[in-house]
Write a protein that binds this DNA or RNA. Structure first.
Lengths: 239, 239
DNA sequence: CCCCTTTTCAAACACTCGTTTGACTCTTTC
DNA sequence: GAAAGAGTCAAACGAGTGTTTGAAAAGGGG
């Protein structure tokens, strides 16, 4: 519903649609700076709109933010569907690769459709009031989906091991977003073009596959008493 | 040099040392909120000091921040030395475990000595002007040290694989700090007591050891053409 | 004694933030 | 043409921020 009620815009040439320009500019600024650091003035300047337009169209800054979230969610799901073309009966490792790849693409792709992934990543690092609505419908399902994939890859693993493995996979992916500027400085060889993301998805997938195997097999054998110096009483194997 | 020149404090009972109270309060607030979100008024309230004390003792907010950085660095190195008692001729996997464990402890320990790790983690996610001074003396050496450990664990690995494996290890550790609140909500079973950190260090170490093995061996065998659907022209094996 | 330095304090300054106001333009409807 | 609504705009408001000011307190040295 881009055309509002029935009144035409005041300036038919400049094609009003201030609301949509605000959504677009807001998405970029929120994704770059996060909710708190982003300013409505910067968003409005980028959208070539007056500051009071935020109040008129969205109520306030938080209203614009939630509108941006919902708007970019649909745009992202359109381009990067949850499974990225992988069927549920594909091999688990193939589904793990699809998960990692889509996760990375949603955050790191220079495409505008990657806005939602960046917003989610910021929401994880610095939750806003919108997190309560996002968690059960976005975060939680992805968490459960990844856990089911990992469970197939490590059939004997216990719940704690699976939970922590999910964190290991997610942590690897998110790190390249949150620490992106630092990584670029520390290792300028690492770039984030389309091919780099594909290669990175391969790396994280293989690294995680190996990690799961390492957890399942070598766990009790040697690293147990080799790693620890003072073996705490806890650390009961959870498999 | 806590005692300044030669004059005693104006209030001998209340034990001046405003400067040290500011350092302590500043460390907590900066670690909790990050440099930008932290406010000097909150720090001064916590330190029971006047706002202008920041200007007097440290020049400005940035001066207090760098002073906090240097002050907490020494306190952290005292309790969590770089190698945590691991000798350079220990086995590489033992050194990897020591690295991960000290990395986690420096961030997640409830101890006040973990301030510096938290400050570093915030600096990685949101660099300040102090990052330029910190990078070559703190970040870079840790990066190189971890790379040398991983190189021993995967002798045939190429530079790119090693770099990305470093990011995989660091990313796993940092995730538990940055996403801590979300993890606690998503999986309340995960806590971060002293024993939990030890167990977490075990998990990340084993996961990463397995990941390195998986990268070195299974790399070319199957996952190569199994994972990819449209095989980009890049992705030259770097081993 | 007065002068000097060090340190503290309440108050204000200059700035940015999100938000609000009231008038204004333009279109549609009666 | 008049009334009403949709949308925009410059300007200001109030609350926050980091920073600065100028005076006052306190002790040491001449």
């Amino acid at each position: 519903m881009p055309r509002k009620q029935r009144n035409a815009p005041p300036d038919p040439e400049h094609r009003d649609r201030t609301r949509e320009r605000l959504l677009r500019a807001g998405g970029e600024v929120f994704a770059d700076d996060g909710f708190r650091a982003a300013t409505v003035r910067r968003i409005c300047a980028k959208a070539d709109a007056n500051v009071s337009a935020v109040k008129y169209h969205f109520g306030d800054k938080a209203g614009l933010y939630t509108a941006v979230l919902e708007h970019s969610l649909s745009a992202s799901l359109e381009k990067y569907p949850p499974d990225l073309g992988v069927l549920p009966h594909d091999s688990p490792r193939k589904r793990l690769h699809a998960f990692v790849r889509s996760f990375l693409l949603r955050m790191l792709a220079e495409d505008r459709c990657a806005l939602y992934g960046r917003l989610m990543a910021r929401e994880i690092a610095e939750p806003t009031t919108a997190f309560d609505r996002i968690c059960p419908v976005i975060i939680r399902p992805q968490f459960e989906r990844l856990i089911s994939v990992l469970r197939e890859l490590a059939p004997g693993a216990g719940d704690r091991m699976l939970r922590q493995s999910v964190m290991s996979v997610i942590g690897q992916c998110l790190h390249h977003f949150h620490a992106g500027p630092i990584i670029r400085r520390l290792t300028p060889e690492q770039t984030y073009g389309a091919e780099d993301i594909e290669q990175l998805a391969d790396h994280i997938t293989r690294f995680s596959l190996g990690g799961l195997i390492g957890l399942s097999t070598a766990g009790a054998a040697e690293s147990r008493h080799d790693l620890r110096k003072k073996t705490y009483k806890s650390v009961s194997r959870d498999t």
